[in-house]
C-alpha cells in the first residue's frame, strides 16, 4: 500500500480539526498543552479508541458491515474478568479469559453473518442485547468492586511508565501499531481492502471474502474485550453496563476517520486521528469547565460536517472529470 491508507484530504481535515481544537483551547489557556494534561486526554481516549480500531476492520470489510455489539463485548468480558478476580485467581488468567471470551463473541457475530447470512447490523444488534444481558446475569446487575485487586492488575489502568500512562504506552500504542501493521502490511489487510471495495471481484480473484469478514468480527471482539479490561483496571470496577456509548461512538469515530460506511476505505491511522480529535475536544471541554456532554454534540457536528465536506470534494472531483 502506498501511504497509510487514508485519503490525503481526509488526513488534512482531521489534522485541521485537531489543530483548531488544540489551538482554540490553547488560546483560552495555554496550560492545556502541558504534558500532564495531554496524557490525561490520552487516558480518556484509550478505551473507545481501542473499540474504534476493531470497528475499523469491520466497517472496512463492506457489505454494510458494522458491529453494534463492541460495547457489550467489552462489558461482558470485563465482567468475566471481574468474576475471576473475585475468586482470587491470578489476574493474568482473568485477562486471558476476557480476551478469549471476546474472541468467541466476535466469532459468534462473524459466523452468524457469514454462515447464516444475516445482515451484520441485525446480528450485532441481537448479540448486543444478548451480551449485555449475560453480563447482567453473571453479576446480578451489581458492579464488581475490583479496588482490592492486585496492584499489578490495577496498574494497567492507573499506572504509568516513564511518565506516560501505562495503557497509553503499553496497550494502546502497541495495539495501534499491530492494527496498522495488520491493515497496511499484511495479506489480510490487503484482502480486506479489496473485499470492501468490490467483494465479487475479490471472490473471483481467489480472496476468501467470507473468512476475512468473519475475522474482522473476531478482531473487533478481542479488541473490545481488551478495552473492557483497561476500563475495569482504570475504574477499579467491572460494570455489566460498561461502554454503552461505545457501540455507536466507535462507529462515529471510524466514519470521522475517513471510512466509507459502505466499505473499502477505512484506515487505522484515520481512526486514531479521529479518536485524538474526540479526546481533545472532550478533555478541553471539561478542562475549561464546560460540561463534558458538549463533547457528544461536537462529535455529532464534526461527524456530519466531515462527511458532507467529503461529499462536496467528491462531487467537485466528479464534475471536473
Amino acid at each position: 500500500m502506498g501511504g497509510i491508507g487514508i485519503d490525503r484530504s481526509r488526513l488534512l481535515l482531521l489534522i485541521v480539526f485537531l489543530g483548531v481544537a488544540l489551538g482554540g483551547y490553547a488560546l483560552i489557556d495555554l496550560q492545556i498543552l502541558a504534558a500532564g494534561n495531554l496524557t490525561s486526554m490520552a487516558v480518556f481516549a484509550v478505551e473507545v479508541g481501542i473499540l474504534a480500531l476493531g470497528q475499523t476492520f469491520v466497517i472496512c470489510g463492506g457489505d454494510g458491515g458494522v458491529d453494534l455489539s463492541v460495547g457489550a463485548i467489552a462489558a461482558l468480558s470485563q465482567v468475566l474478568l471481574g468474576l475471576v478476580l473475585k475468586d482470587r485467581l491470578p489476574w493474568e488468567l482473568g485477562v486471558l479469559a476476557a480476551l478469549c471470551a471476546g474472541a468467541v463473541m466476535g466469532l459468534a457475530n462473524g459466523l452468524a453473518y457469514a454462515v447464516l447470512r444475516i445482515p451484520s447490523i441485525i446480528v450485532t444488534l441481537a448479540t448486543m442485547f444478548a451480551f449485555y444481558g449475560l453480563a447482567l446475569v453473571f453479576t446480578g446487575g451489581i458492579n464488581i468492586d475490583l479496588t482490592a485487586s492486585p496492584p499489578s492488575f490495577l496498574a494497567i489502568g492507573q499506572g504509568s511508565v516513564i511518565g506516560l500512562p501505562f495503557q497509553v504506552l503499553l496497550i494502546y500504542l502497541p495495539v495501534f501499531l499491530a492494527c496498522a501493521y495488520l491493515q497496511l502490511f499484511t495479506a489480510f489487510g490487503r484482502g480486506l481492502y479489496l473485499t470492501g471495495t468490490n467483494d465479487l471481484a475479490a471472490r473471483l480473484a481467489g480472496i476468501g471474502v467470507n473468512r476475512i469478514r468473519c475475522l474482522t468480527f473476531v478482531i473487533a471482539g478481542v479488541l473490545a474485550a481488551l478495552a473492557g479490561v483497561v476500563s475495569a483496571a482504570r475504574l477499579g470496577t467491572a460494570r455489566p453496563d460498561a461502554s454503552e456509548t461505545g457501540n455507536l461512538l466507535s462507529i462515529a469515530i471510524v466514519v470521522l476517520g475517513g471510512a466509507d460506511i459502505f466499505g473499502g476505505d477505512g484506515s487505522v491511522v484515520g481512526s486514531v486521528l479521529a479518536t485524538m480529535v474526540i479526546a481533545v475536544v472532550d478533555y478541553g471541554l471539561s478542562y475549561n469547565n464546560f460540561n463534558p456532554i458538549y463533547q457528544a454534540g461536537v462529535i455529532g457536528v464534526i461527524l456530519i460536517t466531515s462527511v458532507m465536506a467529503q461529499n462536496l470534494v467528491r462531487f467537485r472531483a466528479r464534475q471536473r472529470s
Partner: peptide, 9 residues
C-alpha cells in the same frame, strides 16, 4: 462489476 477494484492502485 467482477474485475476492477476501481479506486485502488
Amino acid at each position: 462489476l467482477q474485475g476492477l477494484f476501481a479506486n485502488k492502485p
